[in-house]
Simulated assay, not measured.
Amino acid sequence: MANKRFSSGTGPSQRQLRVGELIRRTLSDVLNRAEIHDPGLNRMSITVGEVSCSPDLKVATVYVMPLMGSVKVEEAIEALARNKAELRHRVASELTLKYAPDLRFRPDETFDRLDETRRLFSDPKVRQDIASPEGDDEDDGDA
């Protein structure tokens, strides 16, 4: 019998979601308390929006965004990447995982997608499709 190592589902497993959320909270706490020995990183106010883990939990992609445009996203990602080893050590010490995941930092584009979704919903053609008249499918009850 073949042993399936990874689920064939399209989305992440419950374990991936749970570990991703634990990593997100840990990184948020570490960045909030300014525990990293880098004054440049400690001056930045960075939001950790989401963490997605690979199926084997060895790679964690961290989606970050500086708050209120205080610094450019590229600068924040560069500072986080520069301190990746220390951040990885903090995550490993907080969580009981077999392997400390490799952290990869990416810009969080959730807000950009949200703006695009709002723009689509405000389009008159889309509003027309959404606002269907009530009672089209109902019988008059004259039977």
Rank of each mutant, 00 (worst) to 15 (best):
M1L: 06
A2S: 13
N3C: 02
K4P: 00
R5D: 05
S7G: 14
G9K: 15
T10M: 13
G11N: 14
G11L: 13
P12S: 13
P12F: 06
Q14W: 11
R15E: 10
R15Y: 11
L17F: 08
V19E: 03
G20W: 01
E21G: 08
E21D: 14
E21F: 07
L27H: 06
S28F: 09
V30T: 12
V30C: 07
L31W: 08
E35F: 12
E35I: 10
D38F: 09
P39T: 11
P39K: 08
P39G: 09
G40W: 07
G40C: 08
L41K: 07
L41H: 06
L41E: 07
N42Y: 05
R43D: 15
S45W: 11
S45Q: 15
I46V: 15
T47A: 15
V48T: 08
V48R: 02
V48A: 06
E50F: 02
V51E: 02
D56T: 03
A60I: 04
V62H: 02
M65H: 04
M65Y: 04
L67Y: 06
L67T: 10
L67Q: 10
L67R: 13
M68Q: 12
M68S: 11
S70Q: 14
K72E: 12
V73P: 00
I77D: 03
E78P: 00
E78F: 06
E78K: 13
A79P: 00
R82Y: 10
A85D: 09
A85V: 07
E86P: 00
L87Q: 03
R88P: 02
R88T: 07
H89M: 01
H89K: 10
R90P: 00
V91A: 03
E94Q: 09
L95G: 01
L97V: 04
L97D: 00
L97R: 00
K98H: 09
K98P: 03
A100D: 06
P101N: 03
D102V: 05
F105V: 04
R106W: 05
R106T: 07
R106L: 09
P107V: 04
D108L: 06
D108M: 07
E109Y: 01
T110C: 04
F111D: 14
D112G: 11
D112F: 04
D112C: 05
R113N: 09
R113T: 07
D115L: 10
D115F: 00
E116W: 03
E116D: 12
T117L: 15
T117P: 05
R118L: 15
R119F: 01
F121Y: 12
F121V: 01
S122P: 00
S122I: 01
P124R: 09
V126D: 00
R127H: 04
R127Y: 02
R127T: 02
Q128I: 09
D129F: 05
D129Y: 01
I130T: 05
A131E: 13
P133F: 07
E134I: 08
G135R: 11
D136I: 11
D137P: 01
E138H: 08
G141Q: 06
G141N: 05
A143V: 05
